[in-house]
Design a binder for these strands. Structure first.
Lengths: 148, 148
DNA sequence: TGCATTTAGTTAGATATCGAACTATATAGG
DNA sequence: CCTATATAGTTCGATATCTAACTAAATGCA
């Protein structure tokens, strides 16, 4: 990376590579057939206290397009990890909820992820992580607003 | 994201979403058929002063697997943006170089990327970016070493 | 009421990415 | 020398992701 490259370019480049390294490491330990994208959906429901959400809401929460969410939900549904029903209040929409098997799978994934996460934390100082988080949250929030 | 989630998890989550937002914004302005992955390869050669590199070296530089680089190079080759020749010194290996059309394409991509990059910079303070870069470089370097 | 616009979801086609398994070549040790 | 191991590249099959284009339903407005 040349010194003449703009600062923002360097920052986004580092973010891209870190994302690649961490995604690959995390994906490698997930149970056969599970992916980060699918785990993220299951984990979202755990945080929600198992409320229902529409595919569009989920897509928006993760900043992915609706076609991508259609694809991921189809796989989760096929694996019996979520249930997808028509929304009685809106004929266009659907309601997704997590199944008991989905909750179990989410817990299993969390267990498996603990290892690589601990490895990462062991080499990264918590000062670095603590300094990073608010900066990243700020960047994310601003880019999010820019997108609209 | 619950308060009970580990700090590292939050950091990697933010990085993932920022990566998604920026990648999508940058990809959207590239010339028809070009992608971030392909541009990254062309840009790498510009920084190298057009030296030749093997597919394995390129894959390693971007932290992607060799099969992925095979795929990207095939597309660049098909589009006439790089040239791939056997390595005379090693029968297993190949040597990749950028063509004049490849250099031209790289310059065009840079022009197109300037817009979204400026947008991003306009909403992000340079203090934030300057604070982020060394932290991210540190994280990347440490994760890189962890991978080996 | 009725038509135009918006929104939800899907389908199709493309690229990027991975791991696993394969071929071919190079290198190291006995 | 010869075999075992390591490395380079590819092929295959899978998932994630995007855009473009489509259908169906809701909403807005005249």
């Amino acid at each position: 990376m040349s010194d003449r490259d703009p600062l923002a370019f360097k920052v986004f480049n580092e973010i891209g590579i870190i994302n690649q390294l961490t995604s690959a490491a995390f994906a490698a330990v997930l149970p056969k057939g599970m992916t980060i994208a699918q785990f993220t959906v299951l984990n979202h429901f755990a945080r929600l206290g198992h409320e229902q959400r529409s595919p569009a809401q989920l897509a928006s929460a993760f900043q992915i397009t609706r076609p991508t969410m259609t694809s991921t939900l189809a796989r989760l549904d096929k694996a019996g990890l979520v249930t997808i029903k028509p929304d009685p209040g809106d004929g266009r929409s659907k309601l997704v909820s997590v199944t008991a098997a989905g909750e179990k799978m989410r817990d299993l994934c969390l267990q498996r992820l603990a290892g690589p996460m601990a490895d990462a934390v062991s080499v990264l100082s918590s000062e670095t992580l603590e300094a990073l988080l608010p900066l990243l949250q700020d960047v994310r929030a601003k880019l999010d607003r820019l997108r609209d």
